[in-house]
């Protein structure tokens, strides 16, 4: 394509046309592809700058002020946080929450994607639609629903448990059950996203690769291990990264279900910084807490995206 363009475009303008062209520099600038591209991206750039870049830098500035935001105190807020046991518990819980939730979301997504993919084409759309429901319902509402389900006295779950002869569980007020519950709800909400991404990836694997593998002697498991998984590697890496970021920064599920309790055991970064910054009125300390997420996620993103680019170059 490029050489075709070159062949009909004059390499040098005739002298007579050069002079007016110089005068209308603006017109020439507008004609350049890169200018058009920048102009078309401008609305997005403005939104990103206004809603993400500015607040990000503002929160860095904020995190270096004292509680009443009257003095610059350097890294004191960060030092204070690092010396608090509660903060380290939040780090631990954030990691447990994000890693386990993403792992189970990806696993459940992968398994259900396979199941749906193997359904006959007729019923597939119906199932796909139904399985997407958790992801479609507004999270705040569905979490309230779950909060009710976990209610120790009136809830359906405990009703069934006691019906089966088990003891009722105080889901949201026993520390470890509370951790389990918030992870469960997050998995329930996020798995359909993985399902739909993996289903699309599965459908894009050429059928003939499986046929070639059948002839090469592969069993169903070997086909999955040697064909499906490597072919889906990139989409798995990207979805995991994306979900890791979103889950790590999750706020609504924990805030609505437990608000960080009992005994701060279910706090994640977002809820803890909300507690410190908004509830306790120490905005700089809240900003400092939320900033801890950034380096952790940046490192994960660099590693995952590097792998994605490498594989992308190889497979194409």
């Amino acid at each position: 394509m490029a050489d075709i363009v070159q062949s009909w475009m004059p390499t040098e303008l005739p002298e007579t046309e050069k002079a007016p062209a110089k005068k209308s520099g603006l017109r020439r600038l507008m004609r350049r592809h890169s200018t058009t591209a920048v102009l078309m991206c401008l609305p997005l750039i403005v939104i990103v700058a206004g809603l993400i870049i500015y607040p990000a830098f503002y929160s860095i500035y904020l995190s270096m002020l004292n509680k009443s935001q009257t003095h610059f105190i350097g890294l004191s807020n960060f030092n204070f946080l690092l010396s608090r046991d509660t903060f380290w518990m939040v780090v631990e819980q954030s990691a447990i929450f994000a890693l386990s939730a993403v792992f189970f979301k990806a696993l459940i997504g992968l398994i259900t994607a396979h199941l749906v993919n193997n359904l006959p084409a007729k019923g597939q759309r119906k199932w796909r639609g139904m399985l997407l429901v958790p992801w479609v319902i507004p999270l705040a509402l569905s979490t309230l629903g779950w909060w009710w389900l976990f209610d120790p006295t009136y809830s359906a779950i405990n009703f069934i448990l006691s019906g089966l002869g088990f003891e009722k569980i105080a889901w949201l007020s026993t520390p470890y059950w509370a951790r389990f519950s918030v992870i469960l709800v997050n998995v329930w909400y996020g798995a359909p996203f993985f399902l739909i991404m993996y289903l699309a990836a599965l459908k894009s694997v050429p059928e003939q690769l499986y046929e070639a593998a059948s002839i090469d002697g592969a069993t169903a498991w070997q086909k999955f291990r040697h064909i499906t998984l490597p072919m889906m590697h990139n989409i798995i890496a990207i979805t995991v990264l994306f979900s890791l970021i979103v889950t790590f920064a999750n706020f609504d599920v924990v805030q609505i279900m437990t608000a960080g309790g009992p005994r701060n055991m279910t706090h994640v970064f977002a809820t803890y910084s909300f507690l410190l910054g908004i509830r306790s009125g120490d905005l700089p300390l809240g900003a400092a807490t939320s900033l801890f997420m950034f380096p952790i996620l940046a490192i994960a993103a660099v590693f995952i995206l590097r792998g994605v680019r490498k594989r992308g170059r190889e497979i194409g």
Binding site: P206, A212, H233, E314, I315
Partner: peptide, 8 residues
């Protein structure tokens, strides 16, 4: 026909 080589 389209070779069906394993791309990875």
């Amino acid at each position: 026909q389209n070779y069906a080589l394993y791309p990875h």
